[in-house]
């Protein structure tokens, strides 16, 4: 299962802090993919946070905004109030 497939099929969606989240349609395979990718994203965000001397939370917030903006139509995302939406 690739990330693109998981997003196109709506198994995984993006959340407001720049990480993947499982949608109600998600399965075990999607879950392992999500955990693996989120871990890698977190280390990348942390290195930016350290370099810019800013809180990790701020990097995640800006990343979330940018990722959600770039989503293709039909893909899912969760807003900061925890509501799922379809692009």
């Amino acid at each position: 299962l690739t990330l693109d497939e998981a997003q196109n099929k709506g198994l995984l969606g993006e959340n407001a802090s720049g990480y993947l989240e499982m949608t109600p349609r998600g399965n075990a395979e999607a879950k392992t993919l999500m955990t693996d990718i989120n871990a890698q994203r977190k280390t990348k965000y942390q290195s930016i946070a350290d370099k810019q001397k800013t809180e990790l939370k701020s990097i995640e917030k800006i990343a979330g905004e940018k990722i959600i903006n770039k989503l293709n139509t039909g893909e899912f995302f969760k807003d900061s109030n925890g509501q799922w939406h379809k692009k």
Partner: peptide, 18 residues
């Protein structure tokens, strides 16, 4: 702007009223 981002001013107010 950098203070707004680092102190997360907008998010904190939103959370307070939702």
């Amino acid at each position: 702007e950098s203070l707004r981002v680092s102190n997360d001013i907008v998010q904190k107010l939103e959370n307070k009223y939702q």
